[in-house]
Design a protein around this nucleic acid. Structure first.
Lengths: 216, 216
DNA sequence: CAAGTGCATACTACTGAGTATGTTTCTGGG
DNA sequence: CCCAGAAACATACTCAGTAGTATGCACTTG
């Protein structure tokens, strides 16, 4: 799974040409713990055991760094969810697979996905330069596309009769909220294994698919 | 409903003694739009048509102001949800009422509740002074109590057989995530009425209670 | 060995939290 | 009715933190 993510990682080129996963990871962790504005470039550098110079060599601004972390987070979500769209099972079954993979990606790349959640909230924020504004819009388009993946399969599920709901848009937003909320409350335990995460993801998906009320 | 909130509003006294709902509201809106760190005290003052002096007359620091907004947001959630715990219906029915009221409160006090959501995320953040650290811990206790309200009724629902789920803690976190996510995507339309919000809340709750998969 | 690459060091300039100090309006006791 | 004194702000500062820059320096590569 993780190897698959690495192999299919989309290009991460930014302003200065090359990228640097080490920097991205350190930045993601800082942004997760303190948020974008409370994180100084020096904080990220300190976590790297380096200085500003290294970061500004690769990224032209703090905002661009944030954007690239966001980009990486979205890429991982796509890589996790897209393969689950096709395959066997009715619409809701496939939706369940997508949700489970989404949840697992949230846990495995918690720092990046927390930044993604922050980024959504940042939409309104006036990004300073026009170039940054364009990048931000582009990121929001990617986010919409991600949501659309779920809408597509939800429509298919409505047509094959496996989906109960009527209002697809609200339904998708609701269930994605349940998953994304992991960024708020989930913290990995030190001794946690992949299996533990699978179990947690399965429980969450089960709740979403079956609902709270017992079925007869 | 709104009048009821005002009547039962808990005391909002802070450092300097008295409070000021006007300031709290302006601050909540700024924090919602830009986040805590990106919001300057001057921003809040500008929105009030005033200057820093007014704000620092009532609040000893930006952090304390944030805390009081959070407090107000939590108070509104409690006032919305608590009355729905008791009354007729099985456990899941009452849970549904609580969730619906929660969703409505999110929409009606969007700015305050967005700050509450931010506050949860801020938990890890090192609040500077020991006094602020204590206040932050206190706020998190209040949040836990809020979550406990749902757990209590969920346990009752498990006992009366109306609840399908086994893991109460994960179930509650999942469904609260679905509701809280409203803070991210919900934006009131200009011509929106109370009825519109009721319909939206009902759809969300229906999705949570019944689940995605169609029942035979 | 010349030209870049990959950083570190040492600055600058500005923003923004908090403070110190007016200035005006209210309030309550004589 | 008058007038301390407090309450409710506004104005004008200070100063620490931080984004971004300019420059230096080792090390690689063609």
């Amino acid at each position: 799974m993780i190897k698959a993510i690495d192999e299919t990682r989309i290009e991460n080129t930014r302003s200065n040409g090359s990228s640097n996963l080490e920097i991205l990871t350190a930045a993601a962790e800082c942004f997760m713990e303190q948020g974008f504005h409370a994180t100084s470039i020096d904080d990220v550098a300190r976590r790297l055991g380096a200085t500003k110079g290294r970061i500004y060599h690769y990224y032209s601004s703090k905002t661009d760094l944030f954007f690239d972390v966001h980009r990486e987070g979205m890429a991982r979500l796509f890589n996790a969810v897209k393969p689950a769209m096709k395959g066997e099972g009715d619409g809701v079954t496939r939706l369940g697979r997508m949700l489970k993979n989404h949840a697992l990606a949230m846990m495995e790349s918690l720092a990046f996905e927390t930044v993604v959640v922050q980024g959504v909230h940042m939409h309104r924020l006036g990004a300073t330069t026009p170039a940054q504004r364009r990048t931000l819009d582009e990121l929001m388009i990617i986010r919409d596309e991600f949501e659309t993946l779920f809408k597509i399969v939800a429509y298919e599920a409505a047509e094959d009769g496996s989906l109960a709901s009527r209002d697809i848009s609200i339904t998708v937003k609701t269930i994605l909220g349940a998953i994304n909320w992991l960024a708020i409350w989930y913290r990995p335990r030190p001794d946690e294994t992949e299996v533990d995460r699978e179990i947690l993801a399965a429980k969450i998906v089960e709740t979403i698919l079956s609902g709270l009320r017992r079925r007869e």
